[in-house]
């Protein structure tokens, strides 16, 4: 192996990166980050095949992005998260892959440098899913977070309903008809963008939705897209550039 680094990248906010890794850690143990001319990408399908996380960070999201050719960095998600937790707000994250080693540096007032093994993570074939969604809403991330927390108080299922293009409901579904409801309307400005091409209603597991709540700390806006009894797609736009998408299979009534 040569001594030259095969990839060196530097991300401006280690805490934002931590939020992404935290979400990944909820659904999978090991993952590989692909580095190419288009940027960095992590795709992880949970072993029960119920949820998929897709992280895309273009080169412009990084302070430094030097990748000679396609490179892949494989790591244990829980261990990586442990390292990231040592960082503080405002710290920078530097990752360098060289041979079979990866050096991770958290750079703030002090520089913390960790060297880990670049794991050979077997990548499952994950076909690109193609969807059309009949309802699509852009909301403040906090609003979604609170609605899910409210729903959690009554049960383990959340129901999204888009009856028309002026109202949007997020409901907690509890045992024996109990429930909690959050009603969002276009007039109050809560629905920043809202398109409904067909009345849509679907239910999802709160446990699985909670996995990505860590991302509401770094993304201000969330897009919620779904169709009746079909998968849900949550889109988080990261500050600077970059996007995380979370795809979740429905629960049937």
């Amino acid at each position: 192996m040569s001594d030259a680094a095969i990839a060196r990248i530097s991300y401006p906010d280690s805490k934002a990166f931590q939020s992404m890794i935290e979400a990944l850690s909820k659904i999978i143990d090991e993952v590989s980050m692909k580095l190419g001319p288009e940027g960095a990408r992590i795709r992880a399908l949970d072993p029960a095949k119920i949820a998929l996380i897709d992280i895309k960070l273009p080169p412009s999201a990084f302070l430094e992005y030097s990748v000679e050719e396609e490179a892949s960095i494989g790591f244990n998600v829980a261990n990586f998260l442990k390292l990231l937790k040592r960082g503080k707000r405002g710290d920078r994250l530097e990752i360098e892959a060289k041979g079979d080693r990866v050096t991770i540096a958290i750079v703030g007032d002090v520089v913390r440098r960790y060297t880990i093994l670049n794991l050979d993570v077997i990548e499952p074939e994950i076909p690109e899913a193609r969807f059309s969604f009949n309802a699509s809403a852009t909301l403040l991330a906090d609003l979604v977070k609170n609605a899910i927390r409210d729903a959690e108080a009554v049960g383990d299922t959340v129901e999204f309903e888009a009856p028309n293009d002026s109202e949007f409901y997020i409901r907690g579904v509890g045992p024996e008809g109990s429930g909690a409801e959050t009603r969002l309307t276009a007039e109050t400005g809560q629905l920043i963008e809202y398109n409904v091409s067909e009345h849509s209603k679907a239910r999802y597991s709160i446990d699985y939705l909670k996995h990505v709540l860590s991302l509401t700390k770094v993304a201000d806006l969330v897009t919620v897209e779904f169709s009746t009894d079909a998968p849900l797609r949550l889109g988080f736009s990261l500050p600077g550039e970059g996007r995380v998408e979370y795809l979740l299979a429905p629960k049937l009534e």
Partner: peptide, 14 residues
């Protein structure tokens, strides 16, 4: 749950 929770496979044809 095994009855009601669907998986993504239904919507992900290779």
């Amino acid at each position: 749950k095994i009855v009601r929770q669907k998986t993504l496979e239904t919507w992900m044809q290779p």
